[in-house]
Simulated assay, not measured.
Amino acid sequence: MYKIISNVYDILLYLPLISIRLKVKKIIKTLGVKSIIDICCGTGNQLKMLKRSGYDDLTGIDLSENMLKVANRGKYKLKCQQQDATKLSFKDDNFDLGIISLALHEKPLEVQNLVLNEAKRVIKKDGYLIVVDYMFDKHAFILGVLEIFIVEAMVGGDHFRNFRKFIKNGGLESITKDKFEKINEYKFHFGGTRCFVLKNIK
């Protein structure tokens, strides 16, 4: 799928995601961190935004070779590598902060947990993880729920099946609550998309 859409991914998702990316950049500035890893970084747009803002110690990983080709293009040179997010090559306690943005809902539950476990391992004690993904609770308005559901249904296949299971299991809250301490939460897309700021308590 990503081989097909990698070259148009940023065009299609620029407007739906720009407010989230700007918020993530603002959050990172308040945390005073230096070394940052974007897990499942896709085309690297969040990292490029951080690079333009003066951050230098940036690493991105993604499994898709095509998405990484796009990430490594342009004037802002990034360290984006092809890696499996469930088996990162980095040593323990290596980064001040990690980012996982809209990458968990499309994966089976066991893979979601492996990705989060690896993030926990490579992020320093008392470091931070910013996770953006879906949650359809009482704070999510029907308009946001419908918009997200339609987009995910259009993707279809295993992606959509995993998304439905992810929502049924409780969404973002359900998979992060036992691994990290939530210190802040922000809502987007009429509450259907959440940004959790988590602390890595080991």
Rank of each mutant, 00 (worst) to 15 (best):
M1E: 13
K3D: 14
K3A: 09
N7S: 15
I11E: 10
I11T: 14
P16I: 12
L17E: 15
S19L: 13
L22A: 07
V24H: 00
L31F: 03
V33F: 02
V33S: 05
V33T: 13
S35I: 00
I36T: 08
I36M: 08
C40Y: 01
C41N: 06
L47H: 01
M49L: 15
M49R: 12
L50P: 09
L50D: 02
R52I: 04
S53K: 09
S53G: 03
G54S: 04
D56M: 07
D57M: 09
G60Y: 00
D62Q: 07
E65D: 13
M67F: 11
L68Y: 01
K69Y: 09
K69Q: 13
A71I: 01
N72G: 12
G74Y: 04
K75A: 10
K77T: 06
K77Q: 13
C80P: 04
Q83R: 08
D84E: 10
A85F: 03
A85Y: 04
A85E: 08
T86H: 02
K87C: 08
F90K: 09
K91I: 11
N94Q: 14
D96E: 11
L97I: 02
L97R: 03
I100P: 00
S101R: 08
S101Y: 04
A103P: 01
L104G: 06
E106C: 07
E106R: 05
E106P: 00
K107A: 02
P108M: 11
L109S: 13
L109N: 11
L109E: 14
L109V: 11
V111W: 03
N113Y: 14
E118M: 05
K120F: 05
I123F: 01
I123L: 03
K124E: 12
K125A: 07
K125Q: 10
G127A: 06
G127C: 05
G127I: 05
G127R: 03
Y128G: 04
L129C: 06
I130Y: 01
I130T: 04
D133S: 12
Y134K: 12
M135I: 06
A140I: 09
I142K: 14
L143H: 08
V145A: 02
E147W: 13
F149C: 02
F149I: 02
A153G: 03
A153P: 01
M154W: 09
V155K: 10
G157R: 15
H159Y: 15
F160E: 06
R161W: 04
R164F: 06
R164I: 13
I167K: 06
G171K: 01
S174G: 01
I175Y: 07
T176F: 01
K177Y: 12
D178R: 12
K179T: 05
K182R: 15
I183Y: 03
E185G: 00
K187V: 00
F188D: 07
R194N: 12
F196Q: 02
V197G: 00
N200P: 02
K202S: 13
K202I: 04
